[in-house]
Amino acid sequence: MRNQSRRSFLKQAAFAGTAAAAAPVAGTAIAQEAASATMSIARWNGAPVAEADVGPMAVKLTEQAIEALGGMGRFVSSGNSVWIKPNMAWDRTPEQAANTNPDVVATLIRLCFDAGAKTVRVGDFTCNEASKTYPRSGIEAAAKAAGAEVMYLDPSRFREYVIGGSRLDKWQVCPEIVESDLVINVPIAKHHSISTVTLAMKNYMGVVDKRNVFHQDIPTCLCDITRFMSPKLCVLDAVRILTAHGPTGGDLADVQRKDTVVASTDIVALDAFGAELLGHDPKDIATVAAGDAAGLGTLDYRSLIPKEIAVA
């Protein structure tokens, strides 16, 4: 992301040149409109889907949400390395809605490869032991089946980066994530006891070490790390959401089906939408408000005129 290798620069330059030359021929008004969209909301509008059939629905929702933003080709260039950062921090099953839906993750992997990505890696710095959360979340198997590399993070190999934030000056961050060409932030919408909700900004907790001190001032810390990560694409999994006893959950009574996937280039708008989905005014969520005030995006996500897609 920061340190671009010469080879990848040349590749990208060559690709961009070709694309620029081809654009007048291939470009249509519709594609251009999609390529400028900043937010898309894919909601299931078909017949009610049984719990056992959530997977295929999640695939369709994800595909259409990305398509409405102009397709994965807008974010991924040929030869790119992509890091997909789901929330897979907890030793819980997909039905318990504490981790990102595995089918959403697998679909993003496939779209990245289709767009020409060279490597797609999936990994999270987990809360429960990764050796348990990776398989139990269902993401390890789904990601491997989709051809991604599943990465177990080793905090002893994190590097100190200059964050330059107001709380975080220098901090240990996973270098393999930072150095990827693209990081796709894929949280699940959940209740959280400290920050009320946990969404995309909070999902960046899983790329840094020693994050438990963040809780003393979560909004500022998350703004710092979000600015450092400079998100390009965030995808919110709201197929199932966790409405109480988060972020760990565990009780199926706290899980609600929303059958929704949202994609956005504006992380604050995405989080504002998620907060609303969880029953809050985004202005009341300190992290979202702080993100808006810090200029990381807008909490008035409606002002972006998100593309609403009814999927069936």
Binding site: C127, I194, H215, P247, D251
Partner: peptide, 25 residues
């Protein structure tokens, strides 16, 4: 922290695995 130093924390509550957490505030 919230008792002795007047700061937010609750990392313990966040991680408690019991549903209807054993740590509450």
């Amino acid at each position: 922290l919230p008792y002795a130093y007047g700061r937010e924390c609750m990392v313990c509550e966040e991680h408690c695995p019991i549903s209807t957490k054993a740590i509450h505030f």
